[in-house]
């Protein structure tokens, strides 16, 4: 494959992998939510994200143009080929962890899509225009729950503070460009993730403040996922996700 095409492919996969892994994580919660209405809401977000991943994987297959399908990427790649940020593979934990993880991702995702609407790659721009409607709702949903739980009871406040402390080290990776994102050929196509950092952090801070939560200091942000270096969590996610395709290769489902 032509070098620039391959760089575009890697970039599209990086975006798809984020949506896929977070959607998969949220799917684990279906039937186990804290109340029926929130079970349905979390499941909706899962559907949106896996739907987004599906569109991006289809685009990846088109770029490769060698007969691969949308399923080849999520079902047949091993851990080192995945390029999602570490945040999305973190476990659901208690509902506070789920909400904090979601809110952090939404802060990134929303502003990322806002910019991606202007991508010179028409397909990516179209995908962003469609997906931002969903991401807007996700950000509203997770912001509201940040505030409700942060400023709810003493117990809920403590749980949210705990979740923030556990996850804050994973927030910045989204805004640190990967090797691929720095490629010259992606200029105008890829979103400059450093440029959206300030806006995302501003939203993050203002919601945390309203939620009466203190943002912990991060001395050493965790990163690596975007370059294929993951936490131990991802292996187990893939073991579940890929089980049938691995156990019964070359089957139609």
């Amino acid at each position: 494959m032509d070098k620039n095409k391959n760089i575009l492919l890697q970039y599209v996969l990086q975006l798809a992998d984020n949506a896929m892994i977070l959607g998969q994580r949220l799917g684990e919660l279906c039937g186990h939510g804290p109340i029926l209405e929130q079970d349905i809401a979390i499941t909706n977000i899962s559907l949106d994200l896996i739907g987004e991943a599906r569109v991006l994987y289809s685009y990846a297959a088109e770029i490769e143009g060698n007969g691969k399908t949308e399923d080849d990427y999520p079902y047949k790649r091993d851990i080192l080929d995945w390029k999602n940020i570490l945040l999305v593979e973190q476990p659901n934990g208690h509902f506070g962890h789920t909400i904090v993880r979601q809110f952090m991702f939404d802060c990134y995702h929303y502003y990322h899509l806002t910019e991606m609407r202007n991508s010179s790659d028409i397909r990516l721009a179209e995908i962003a225009k469609k997906t931002i409607k969903e991401a807007t709702y996700h950000l509203k949903y997770s912001s509201e729950w940040m505030i409700r739980l942060g400023d709810g009871t003493e117990e809920s406040h403590a749980k949210m503070q705990e979740a923030l402390s556990d996850l804050i080290r994973f927030f910045d990776e989204a805004f640190i460009p990967s090797k691929i994102e720095k490629e010259e050929s992606l200029k105008g196509i890829a979103v400059d993730c450093e440029r959206i950092r300030n806006r995302a952090w501003e939203k993050f801070r203002s919601v945390c403040e309203e939620a009466t939560l203190k943002i912990p200091e991060v001395e050493y942000p965790q990163e690596g996922g975007k370059n294929g270096l993951h936490s131990e969590q991802l292996g187990f996610i893939l073991a579940d996700l890929q089980f049938l395709q691995r156990a019964y290769p070359n089957s139609n489902w």
Binding site: G33, P34, I35, Q38, H94, F95, R148, L149, G152, T153, E155, S156, K159
Partner: peptide
């Protein structure tokens, strides 16, 4: 496990 969420 959802009790604290509903209470909040």
């Amino acid at each position: 496990e959802g009790q604290w969420v509903r209470d909040a």
